[in-house]
């Protein structure tokens, strides 16, 4: 059964079983490998991407639930790292192994949409992605830096 969805601005019709998790459609069918697999049970957030602008743990979302919707992955944020969250990540040298960072960045972009100036409490409550290298100290600083960058650029994210 073909399922239509728009990924990073491109319309696709994918012929997969409707219960296939969106993650595997993105990674295997569409070959967008920036979004990662780790736990498979929506715990760690490595697979976070946006469906209609909301952060979703794509390892546990059947592709049928994304039919007709707009999906944004790390590749759709910017290809050159110019998005303010990516730029803050580079400026503060956040990643270590980097495996969780695609999902982490997508979660942070969603956070900043809801809270343009997040408090530490907002960050603690909403950033529930796991980073096994524990780069959290820099992630928190980079979130505040990204928020400042977004504000300085007129607030659009």
């Amino acid at each position: 059964m073909a399922i239509d969805l728009t990924v990073n601005g491109v319309r696709h019709s994918v012929d997969v079983s409707p219960d296939t998790p969106l993650l595997w459609v993105v990674r295997d069918t569409l070959k967008l490998t920036g979004t990662k697999f780790s736990c498979g049970i929506a715990q760690c957030g490595a697979c976070t991407l946006h469906v209609d602008g909301r952060p979703v743990r794509s390892c546990s979302l059947p592709v049928s639930a994304a039919a007709g919707k707009t999906v944004t992955t790390i590749e759709g944020l910017s290809t050159d790292g110019s998005h303010p969250v990516q730029a803050a990540w580079v400026e503060l040298d956040v990643p270590q192994c980097g495996y969780c960072q695609s999902g982490m960045i997508m979660s942070v972009v969603a956070l900043l949409k809801r809270h343009p100036k997040p408090t530490d409490a907002d960050i603690d409550a909403e950033i529930t992605n796991a980073c096994r290298c524990s780069t959290y100290h820099r992630i928190r600083q980079a979130i505040h830096l990204a928020a400042a960058k977004v504000t300085a650029a007129g607030g659009k994210i």
């Binding site: 490998t33 580079v90 980097g98 960045i105």
Partner: peptide
Amino acid sequence: KNLDVPIKVTGKAVYGIDINLPGMKW
């Protein structure tokens, strides 16, 4: 700064899991 950071914030860094060869099976 670590030289691989730019490719790790854009999803371009190649990990083993990302390998996809023509004709490859899983």
